[in-house]
Structures are given as C-alpha cells and as structure tokens.
C-alpha cells in the first residue's frame, strides 16, 4: 500500500504533531518532577505527583502510541520504508524503547500519585520516588530528542537490506 501525496502530507502532519507534542508533554512532566523534589511545601509536592500521573496517563501515553503507530504507517506506506535507512530504523528502535519504558513505569507513576495522597507516607519516601521520576523523565526526553534530530537531518546511510532493494530497483529500470 502506497500513500498518495496528499495522504502522505496528512500522515506526516499527524506524526510531527504527535511526536513534538510528546516531547512537550514529557518536558512538562519533567518540570513537575523538578518541582516535586525541590519544593519545601508538602502540599505542593503531594499535588505534583497527582498531576504527573494525570499527564502521563492522559497525554504522554496516548501520544507515545500515536507517534509510534503513525511512524510505522509512514514507514510502511512510503518509499522510505522501515528498514532501508539507518535513520528511520534508529527512530523506530528509540521510539519503541521509550514507549516500552513508559509502559513499564506507568505503575510507578500511578503508585506515586496514590502514595502522595496517603498522609502517612513520609516526605523522605516521596522524595526518593520523586528522584526516580525525575531521572526517568529526563532520560525519556533525551532519548526522544534523538529521533527529532534524525527526522530533520536524515543522515545518509542505507542498511544492507535497503542497499539490496536499491540494487534490485536499478536492475529493473
């Protein structure tokens, strides 16, 4: 299945919006994580973790899946392919990795929100969890910046599979 130029533009638009939106949502999540570990106000800290859980569940997770799925469509339905160019392949691997880590960490994020609402949980324990959330948010942002850079620069490099396809196309023409 190959997309028409108009369909390609639509798919590209959706992919860019979801991918950049995901970066923004993670940046917001990171800002809250920083507030969570740095604030001296206990109420603020407890509220921050509830907000982080909401952002993760309602924004980050859907955008991560949307960016990944639309990216798959773009790869499969355009001449770029998924496995022909190193920059596309690395984008796929990095986005899949970040989404997998997010899924694994959703429980921790949800637990942080529930524990923050439990006043018997000490600030020290909340701080400990907050540091983990901060590190994961920073790491996720760093990982997902790489696909954004690759998308713009599109560095040269055919995979062995892409090279074989190129040779086959040239032999046919």
């Amino acid at each position: 299945m190959t997309l028409t130029p108009a369909q390609r533009k639509l798919v590209l638009t959706v992919h860019v919006v979801t991918s950049v939106g995901l970066l923004g949502a993670i940046a917001a999540f990171l800002a809250l994580a920083v507030l969570g570990v740095s604030t001296a106000d206990e109420q603020t800290q407890r509220g921050v973790y509830a907000a982080m859980a909401l952002i993760a569940r309602a924004v980050i997770l859907p955008l991560a899946f949307a960016a990944l799925l639309v990216g798959l469509v773009q790869g499969l339905a355009t001449p770029w392919g998924l496995l022909r160019h190193y920059w596309v392949l690395l984008k796929l691997l990095l986005t899949s990795f970040a989404t997998a880590i997010l899924l694994i960490k959703m429980r921790m994020i949800g637990d942080a929100a529930r524990l923050a609402s439990d006043l018997t949980v000490s600030r020290a324990d909340l701080n400990s969890l907050g540091v983990q959330l901060l590190v994961h948010a920073a790491g996720g942002l760093a990982v997902l910046l790489v696909p954004a850079v690759l998308s713009i620069y599109k560095p040269a490099g055919l995979t062995p599979y892409g090279f074989r396809r190129q040779q086959a196309l040239r032999a046919r023409s």
């Binding site: 001449p79 690395l90 599109k154 490099g157 055919l158 892409g162 040779q167």
Partner: peptide
C-alpha cells in the same frame, strides 16, 4: 532533503558490494 531508496542517498552504488555502516551509526 535526501530522497528514499530510489536515490543514491550517499551510497552511490557504483560497486555491487554492500556499503559499510556509516560512521555516524
């Protein structure tokens, strides 16, 4: 913007051997 597989894309394909992995990779 470099094109997809139909263009040379830095691997001019003059030789039949598979190009090596680019340095950036």
């Amino acid at each position: 913007m470099t094109g997809p597989v139909t263009e040379a894309d830095g691997d001019r394909g003059r030789s039949a051997s598979t190009p090596g992995m680019p340095r950036w990779v």
